[in-house]
Nucleic acid binder design. Structure first.
Lengths: 341, 341
DNA sequence: TGAGTTTATGCAATCGATTTCATGTCCGGT
DNA sequence: ACCGGACATGAAATCGATTGCATAAACTCA
């Protein structure tokens, strides 16, 4: 057969010390004398010892893992975020579990169950659609302080939230279009009930009012962050009598669908109509035309969420509340230009 | 403070039986009498007991987790696969760990380390770029039979492989173009050294020869599965004196970049040039023009890999080797049409 | 009725680490 | 020379489950 992994007993025997000493060398070397420390480290080398996580977790009453709840792993938007999160946990001895809440919907008891099981020590949710009951169950079993929301969040709950400054992003987009000379600006929203939909729509409306731009209710088009919804929006716009000269989309994917639809309908982007996206996913820079958009620091968002959660897990301090919003940035590319009345 | 999770002891006390009995009720109910079984189940309800995974894993000498190695989580291609994998593990009491091998490159000892640690019981690698040394270390520590490759694989190694019939996909694409009347067919490859690049290129070359289609070396354009490489390929093609009338791309993303580039260069798709992709990712159906492509059953591939790995983990049987290739399918949409010489 | 099964259950060892507590040694100060 | 403290180490309890073995009760069959 194959060689069984060495246990702490094996190391202790090899080094001629007790298991307690081996354990101390590994986790608290200051307590051990120079001589024995070296002997133990040598024995560790020789035996190829690695600490058994199950045993350690059992003894330390922890799970050694965190769970990331992703609404839909397929959306390119999440990739950079996940990379940032993983990076944030490198060297922390927490394993990162990822689950797709769309293809594996959570029951109310599932998340708290993972905590009770000792499967996870903490969670980062990119899904703002968790039920209040599910969260209440987590709080009840003491997991409340170990859940962090990222990008999305649940209204009326007091969990830490890391997110971009969505309102500011909307503001930047509108101001950019206004600076180019656009007055008739449409908006394709996210799905109803999504917290980001609200934040971006309201930011956009506020800025439009501030700048005194004209308002038409049909210029606010309901979407759902998908390529298809952008495509549908294009049809709506093509059919309008009083067409906007620019469109601010709630997500880059929407912008892609929109642009494709507009071009298929005979318009040119940006000559006939300007388009601004939101997110700045990888593809946006190489789309044709390259997309002007609001950049979210996806990697940074992920890292920050990991940091905040690690901090929670380490200190068990329960000061909740929202983290300062992460800055966004306007990236000007080729999909916007002055209107050509 | 919060209520501590109930242990098996608590349940045993509540039901007036020993912990052994509780354990049996939960894992091997047939051994226990009707009466006590009911009493125990009641006690489980009342206490809200859930078995502690760390303890169970320690005792059973398992990790309760599998690791999925994904080359780049950001690529939409992987989404459906991951969904299929997760689905395959639902109800199996294995946790699914996901890691991005691009943003977190594996050292030679990392993967085997996870096995030795008792962090994972098995792995599914979507990355065909694992080093021989890393794999050798896994084999050495007895983890050889618990690694499954999916989509990609490492040449010269005897791990089970689940993958689509890449050669057949290439054949279908070329035959489709040939049936439409195309003779001058170009191909944008994947990255050098990638196993799929080879499989698809060779499938395409073989079929082209079989049909007696003309060959020009510049019609085989080096790409890397990315949108950008499609875009570059467009420039190459636009600059050719003897232009192909159709292009078979090694991935849908490449096709998107290619089409965008061709259109920007003044050609029409499919009127002036036809384009076929490979993968059929979500976006392909709603791209403009909708993409004709070779569909891989991503969900099914993921599920199958999960099944094969679960099987391995359960039976500890070591019969390795390649699984039968998963079928692919030609999906005809709007990006291909007869040539218009 | 008694020997031999079968069935149901409990006791206690075990998995591999961490950590408390006790012990022993060495040192400096008086 | 003696005492107190600092330091190094080991013995053993502990985390929460699973399971081999022993035992007791119930049942079968001649």
């Amino acid at each position: 057969m194959f060689q069984k992994p060495a246990t702490i007993q094996d190391v202790a025997r090899a080094a001629g010390v007790s298991t307690a000493t081996v354990s101390r060398v590994l986790s608290n070397p200051g307590l051990v004398s120079e001589r024995t420390r070296e002997a133990v480290l040598l024995a560790v080398q020789e035996t190829g010892y690695r600490v058994n996580q199950a045993a350690r977790n059992l003894r330390m009453q922890r799970a050694g893992a965190v769970l990331i709840l992703v609404p839909n792993l397929g959306k390119p938007f999440y990739s950079g975020i996940l990379a940032g999160i993983s990076e944030g946990f490198v060297g922390s001895d927490y394993a990162v579990l990822i689950t797709d809440t769309e293809s594996n919907p959570l029951q109310d008891a599932t998340l708290s169950g993972y905590f009770i099981d000792g499967r996870i020590d903490g969670a980062i949710s990119l899904d703002g659609g968790l039920s209040a009951e599910a969260l209440a169950q987590c709080t009840r079993c003491g997991a409340g302080g170990r859940i962090v929301f990222l990008c999305e969040w649940v209204e009326g709950q007091d969990f830490p939230v890391i997110s971009s400054d969505n309102a500011e992003g909307a503001r930047l987009a509108i101001r950019h279009l206004h600076d180019l000379g656009h007055k008739k600006i449409a908006h394709v929203t996210g799905p109803d009930g999504n917290i980001l939909t609200t934040a971006r729509r309201e930011g956009m409306v506020a800025e439009r009012e501030r700048l005194g731009l004209p308002v038409r209710s049909e210029w606010i088009i309901r979407g759902d962050f998908s390529l298809e919804s952008g495509h549908e929006a294009a049809h709506r716009i093509l059919a309008m009598r009083d067409r906007p000269t620019a469109v601010f989309c709630s997500a880059d994917m929407v912008a892609f669908g929109l642009i494709a639809g507009l071009i298929a309908g005979g318009l040119r982007v940006p000559e006939d109509i300007s388009v601004v996206g939101f997110d700045d996913i990888e593809m946006s820079g190489s789309f044709v035309p390259a997309l002007t958009t609001i950049r979210q620091d996806r990697h940074g968002l992920g890292r920050r969420a990991a940091e905040v959660l690690l901090d929670r897990l380490a200190k068990a301090n329960d000061q909740s509340g929202r983290e300062p919003a992460m800055p966004v940035e306007l990236v000007i590319r080729a999909s916007t230009a002055p209107p050509t009345d």
